[in-house]
Design a protein around this nucleic acid. Structure first.
Lengths: 225, 225
DNA sequence: CGGGTTTTTCAGACTATTTTCAGAAATAGC
DNA sequence: GCTATTTCTGAAAATAGTCTGAAAAACCCG
């Protein structure tokens, strides 16, 4: 799960990041409305936490702009005071939820979870493909009797592949979705993890495998000799 | 997604290409109105980004000509100044959207995305001709039961031929579209790939074949003796 | 602070693709 | 029919992209 924080007050932004990281969520923070919009448009986030008061472009404008572009990423608005008019404005603009500061980390997490769940249609508890079953809660991958646990990155890579079975997933996508847009990770990182995953698939004896599409990416496929 | 850039200022054209490439979009650039019209008519683009000020034939004329030919490719007009009269003229001519320079890459991408989305959305998933079916997502070519996967260049060459079935595609076009305008590849490269493709067509047992038009180029044709 | 796990980095092996080459084949023009 | 030109195509060489083991580094937990 990747979360975008748009909050100009650094202290708070940092705190929000920490809360997200505590859940092992991938998190990026930006500090003004325009950046918020641009990042949100990148399509790599599952939830955007957006302050209303922002330099450049306020939170309402950001949401409105996103919706105008047909971007449906779930947005949680943050505001300093509970003003009913703000709340209405926010939801009218297309935000999905609304929270007033101050708030507890638990409340924030609960709302973020709720949003991401709502978004992802019935949030699957596990992903399946052929004889594979990836448990999203325990990050374990099983096949028939055997099962192994995956590291965080292994898990993310495989989750993305399992979410698009048989579709080619560009290596570039894996890189930005798992490592983040502005990470300095390189292609070989993806390759390394694909290699790890293949080793585990082999160990499990699964009939599913990860195929390479040269110059483009990878995809989950079934039955290889 | 394939984008055509029509922009006489090389610097800007190059920049636009880069922006598109960053999204993994296929992109071609031409530098005057007539070429713009000709390329746009080829029907292989999802969006055309068209400067208004152009040598030869200006942007308005290009759009008008396209629409007169019943070509509905989405066109995004670019102009240097925000002049309301220009805007009206552009949209009246049949352009789909309008953007004033300067603009941010994000804005451009957002508009291009919006245009391609608005446009029917029916992103071709595969190209067909006779008993052949080229899957654009898996880069595989199938015919009846059999199927083979194509390398990158093989795929590009065949895709262009399939986009213009029975039309003669100049060898020169294949060269510039697949290898790029300023590549030092020579005719024999195209010939070699045509040869590869023929071998695969034979293997598949397709009734379609690639015909040679001496001194000009190639074309897909059906039923050879 | 350890000890275990996960992540990154690196380099050499490996592979598919792409290019190059050269002679054979085909075609057009005379 | 003969020649010049163009195209075809098999094979080999060159290149670019990928895989993977191993080791180093970072991280996490108590």
């Amino acid at each position: 799960m990747r979360v975008l924080i748009v909050e100009d007050e650094r202290r708070l932004a940092d705190a929000l990041c920490q809360i997200m990281q505590s859940q092992k969520y991938g998190v990026d923070a930006v500090y003004d409305g325009q950046d918020g919009f641009d990042y949100a448009m990148s399509g790599q986030y599952d939830v955007v936490v957006l302050d209303v008061m922002l330099p450049g472009k306020n939170g309402f404008e950001v949401v409105r702009a996103l919706r105008a572009q047909n971007n449906a990423v779930p947005v949680l608005l943050l505001t300093a005071r509970e003003e009913i008019s703000d709340k209405v404005t926010g939801l009218d603009c297309g935000a999905d939820d609304y929270m007033t500061k101050p708030f507890s980390p638990e409340e924030l997490l609960a709302r973020v979870r709720a949003l991401s769940r709502r978004q992802g249609e019935v949030q699957l508890e596990e992903l399946r493909f052929e004889d594979l079953c990836l448990s999203l809660s325990t990050r374990s991958l099983s096949c028939r009797e055997k099962s192994v646990t995956l590291g965080f990155k292994e898990f993310e890579v495989l989750r993305i592949l399992l979410s698009n079975p048989k579709m080619i997933v560009p290596k570039e996508d894996l890189l930005t979705k798992v490592w983040g847009v502005d990470s300095d990770a390189e292609d070989n990182n993806v390759e390394a993890y694909i290699s790890f995953l293949r080793k585990k698939l082999t160990y499990l004896g699964s009939c599913a495998g990860i195929g390479t599409v040269r110059k483009v990416g990878y995809r989950l496929e079934s039955a290889q000799p």
